[in-house]
Write a protein that binds this DNA or RNA. Sequence first.
DNA 1: CGATCCGCTGTAAACGTTCTCAGTAATCCT
DNA 2: AGGATTACTGAGAACGTTTACAGCGGATCG
Lengths: 350, 350
Amino acid sequence: MTTSDGDAGSNGAAPTLAEVARLANVSVASASRALNGIKTQPETLEQVLAAAARVGYVPNASARSLRSKRTGQVAFSMPDVANPAYTSMLRAIQGVARERGYRLVLHSTGADAAEELAILRDLRRRFVDGLILVPINVTPEHAEELSRASAPVVVIGRLPAEVPVDVVEVDSRRGAALAVKHLHAHGRRRIGFVNGPVKTTPGHARRLGYLDALRAVGLQRDDALVETAEDFTLDAGHEATLRLLARARPDALLCANDLLALGAIGALRSTGCEVPADVAVVGMDNSDLGAIAWPALTSVDLGTSERARRAASLLLDRIEDPDRAPERIRVAPKLVVRASSARARKGRRP
Amino acid sequence: MTTSDGDAGSNGAAPTLAEVARLANVSVASASRALNGIKTQPETLEQVLAAAARVGYVPNASARSLRSKRTGQVAFSMPDVANPAYTSMLRAIQGVARERGYRLVLHSTGADAAEELAILRDLRRRFVDGLILVPINVTPEHAEELSRASAPVVVIGRLPAEVPVDVVEVDSRRGAALAVKHLHAHGRRRIGFVNGPVKTTPGHARRLGYLDALRAVGLQRDDALVETAEDFTLDAGHEATLRLLARARPDALLCANDLLALGAIGALRSTGCEVPADVAVVGMDNSDLGAIAWPALTSVDLGTSERARRAASLLLDRIEDPDRAPERIRVAPKLVVRASSARARKGRRP
DNA sequence: CGATCCGCTGTAAACGTTCTCAGTAATCCT
DNA sequence: AGGATTACTGAGAACGTTTACAGCGGATCG
């Protein structure tokens, strides 16, 4: 009895509102109203509900969105599913979306700017009520397309001030600086930097933060200590670190990313360096990986989940009230110290 | 000129097919045909295309699916976004879907059976053309609901033979056995087992595999060496391992999951055990984490990405041809040996 | 007691496509 | 040359909802 389809079985097709109405001896309009919780006489309400239950009526999503112009779906577009930072975002967004009754459509752009633009344009198909976008870098074309997007968009990342779009951002420049200062305070003096591509927004910002901090603590900038990886992945971090080690002897490494940092730790180990005894390592993102790694990874917490959660709320709020002024939320970075950046081996300062 | 909206601007509303038709001096029917690549006289084709480009026409997804009964969306439902095994699946599925022109809707059930059922029922709303489901365990209700699902479903996991649904499965029972035999061959004799909940399909199967192998290699079963974690997460693995260590002294641990394994390594370390010198550890899933961990984690490769990829292909094939007989694809497990299961310390066999 | 309002209901018009069907002109075959 | 076939087109009916509008009893008010 529990999962019975009632007597709909006679007809293979999915039951429609018209059938429910006929069975309940009311008009489709009344049936619709009853099912949507619009004031109805108790008696008819009951009949409609009974009829609907009897045939196992389920409203058709396409028809509903065509008419009501709302799909109940939001999209999340990110560069790479494999990056745990984005997975955390995904998780947070999925949570908020589900809680507020929206479905989540996922796009992975593979860090391709053209793909991002395509997704923005695709909003015009209206299969989604809004979009959360994590762009890898923002071209003028992005800005242009964002300003005229045909559905609400929230960007997680940096955006020129004149683009009238909700933004949730974090000062990762300052975050990178925090890390360098921490390393300096713990006695490290040859602090290297394994960055991701400088053309990306995070790569650019973190490089600036690294330089800021060197200046602030009075260390000489040495480009031999800086290397950029192909992308923000584990393997790229490994490769980049090997290149760096081939020409320089850092006593600490800031990595633009936890994945890069883990790659770096692997590379250090393979060349016989101990972490943190010989070389301290700090990552960024404070992803779950940090706790898994050995030694546990010191990392800059960029409030990944929080940003995602707030972006999602912002988007849903805007969908429900499109006339609000664009907001710009800023989250503060903070350093999470773990074992990988402990003080250097005593008395060993070659 | 490149990103011009043409002269649609006068009217705020999105341009509709009717407008394109009017501009091209043809009927909506012809316009539709022209845009959908159905044979049209070159002259009208050109006019329609020009008109469409001029107003920046984009077809409305809801209207299209309402009429054509196809949404171009598929759903992927998994227990937990945070588990890297599922993330790999997500990645693979996203790839296939995108390649074949489908969008991906994501559901995370939080390992809640009721939620899974709700998703199956929700198929009747028809906002999606098909579903890939990774159930945490299959109740009779699942089977019932699966048999009568109103859109194609592919299950990744185990399913009773009589349910007429495509399945992609892996023999994780044999996989677990492989691991135990490997440990035995390397001289381990007190092989413990950190399992996930036994009520889940994987938990059940892996337990059987563990017992199979003990019997096969002639080891005495000792329930003090077996502990089950609350769920398949890192923390649960940590806790469970601590419980196990409090009452037994294994020289090896099979973990039902890479996350559990990493949790176990942490727990071992915190109690002063070295891996693999004192205790060997083997995980299952062969997720990316294995390479990150230290020592690198020996793990049973359950073909995660491959299963997902094949499930996705299967689903799309079925959507495009619903009358094919249900398929049952089986992927073979294989052991990937890394450092965490190297031979025990010489001469130390207390 | 007639006018006004209130609460509910049914009719019918959207929403923007796709696709069947019939119609028309041009081409083919015998 | 006449009928059959072909190649394209337009009118209009779906698809399954939501919702503006009008109708219609019954209650309320002066």
